[in-house]
Amino acid sequence: MTSERNPQVYADATQSKGDEAVIECIAVDKFFGDFQALYDINMKVGQQEVVVVIGPSGSGKSTLIRCINRLEKHDRGSITVGGVELTDDIRNVQEIRRETGMVFQSFNLFPHLTVIDNITLAPRQVRRAAKDEAESEAMKLLERVGIPEQARKYPGQLSGGQQQRVAIARSLAMKPKVMLFDEPTSALDPEMIKEVLDVMVELAKGGMTMIVVTHEMGFARAVADRVVFMSDGRIVEVGTPEHFFTDPQEDRTKLFLSQIL
């Protein structure tokens, strides 16, 4: 398949909030064997900007944000995070990962560690923080996500919503410049979705730069600076929430929105 660039989409995707782009993807292609998962992805995310990525399953949303912190390796093009370009150099990759927090659909908390140890593990191992400092920092983060009383429990003792909030706190403990959310509420029971979204909204209000892959349109409307719609590995349409939800331009977008709304 040849990919013809839609100039309007290109312009919308690369027009980030503010002057400086924190994340910049240029002509990124990604293959899984013979299957091409991403086609010519061009995107800029600015300082303190919240970008929500939506699209049908298998459209490459998760692959895209997993490329940004090198959980997947892109095959062509370039990705720059905080001014550092991703290369094969492991030190470079770790540097970028330290600046980039990630929250997974399945939480991926460490089940053999208590909540507080989950949070302090990376600061202590990577940033060489002292134990007391790391723990008092972790307690502040737990208060921020609303569950300081669970600090000494194990992940298995918590509800899904609480686990995901711990996962957010764990990422924040590394003081990242960017947060990546990979469908953070998809594995949650409906009554627990709100408590996680509330934390994310607070985070966005606090000025965190975020890329959020989600199916929560309410969240996209309320918080997003831009909404990116992906389908079949391509960015199909980009726009502000008002524009995107009320006046979509592309047929694929209209079809998708009609199916989910």
Binding site: N108, F110, S171
Partner: peptide, 23 residues
């Protein structure tokens, strides 16, 4: 062990030996 455990460690910027030893 689920792959997500290693990925969570990687995403936090931990070095491979640390991930192996601690997670």
């Amino acid at each position: 062990l689920p792959k997500g455990q290693t990925e969570a460690g990687q995403a936090l910027g931990m070095a491979p030996p640390t991930i192996m030893r601690r997670i």
